[in-house]
């Protein structure tokens, strides 16, 4: 009861000071002003949009118009359906690090993958590399079994090693890309990894890494020329 009395007293004092009354007045005016503005705005919308642009009555027939719309929709649906590949294609979500394998409109498999880390590696002021997976539509250029990785310069720079000549034996590594590789062009591959615990995380240098089972499924499903959509 003491607390209630205290609050009451505080309110009485405040009312004496007219502070709350003033604030309430301002609030009421403000709310009224907003309501008035919105209502007037809606009134303008109703009035202005009421005036429809006059067009020549051509059919003036409900059934004919309905049939035309239905026919148009059917044609447009047909056109849109033809845009989706009928064979296998792959969709990669580089934000959530997930892939979806489709055949036509049917989802075959959805699972984790790894994509670019977004690390910008700087080697002084001279060189820099951005490790991100490109976005857009790609096609499988080539397919390889037991791929060999020819390490680019950044792989040595990243490890704090001196960069060897172009075809030096230290550039070639066997088994690190898994059993298969699918080439998307411009040096980007879909491949396997020795570090399967990182699958599902953004850790790659731009390539797409899959676990062994998914890599085999994708390799066997996707033909050369098949589409890969990355976003």
């Amino acid at each position: 009861m003491n607390l209630v009395n205290k609050i009451k007293e505080a309110f009485e004092v405040s009312f004496k000071n007219k502070l709350i009354i003033r604030l309430c007045k301002i609030l009421i005016v403000f709310v009224a002003f907003i309501i008035l503005s919105i209502q007037s705005q809606n009134l303008i919308i109703n009035l202005k949009f009421h005036k429809n642009i006059t067009v020549k009555d051509r059919t003036n027939d409900f059934e004919l118009a309905k049939a035309k719309l239905e026919k148009d929709i059917k044609q447009l649906n047909h056109k849109l359906d033809s845009k989706t590949p009928k064979s296998h294609y792959l969709v990669i979500n580089s934000s959530s690090n997930e892939f979806s394998l489709y055949k036509g409109k049917n989802l075959i498999k959805k699972d984790k993958c790894s994509t670019g880390s977004y690390v910008l590696l700087k080697n002084g002021d001279q060189q820099q590399w951005m490790f991100k997976t490109p976005k857009g539509e790609f096609r499988i250029q080539t397919k390889t079994i037991s791929p060999i990785w020819k390490k680019p310069d950044w792989a040595f720079v990243e490890d704090g090693l001196p960069v060897p000549p172009v075809n030096h034996h230290s550039r070639f590594e066997y088994g690190v890309l898994g059993d298969y590789a699918l080439n998307l062009g411009h040096g980007y591959l879909i491949h396997g990894t020795l570090f399967q615990r990182f699958i599902g995380l953004p850790v790659t240098h731009g390539c797409i890494r899959l676990n062994d089972d998914n890599l085999e499924l994708v390799y066997k499903s996707m033909a050369v020329g098949a589409k890969v959509y990355i976003y």
Binding site: Y118, L121, K122, G160
Partner: peptide
Amino acid sequence: EPIVVRNAP
């Protein structure tokens, strides 16, 4: 793009 800048070791 959540870019992380790293200098070469």
